[in-house]
Amino acid sequence: MNQYVDVDALWKVLVVGLAGGVGLVALFAVGMVGLAARTAPNAGSQARVAGLALAVVCFTIVVAGAALGLYVMLKK
């Protein structure tokens, strides 16, 4: 079996794929929740600030993650 499958690489691909493909994607969604909280008509000023902060943090991590992925892929 191992002669045909590089199990080591396989696991890494699955873990990193999940981290990027599910983790970053979900974070982006959380950022959207933040944006929605900011623009909600009945939101108080604190909720707006918190929403914006959440959105900024999430989107920053997503962009940084994508950039890191790109860098790592190209560096090799």
Partner: peptide, 10 residues
């Protein structure tokens, strides 16, 4: 997102 992550990782 899934495609990008899996392709990059692979």
């Amino acid at each position: 997102g899934s495609s990008a992550a899996v392709i990059f990782a692979a």
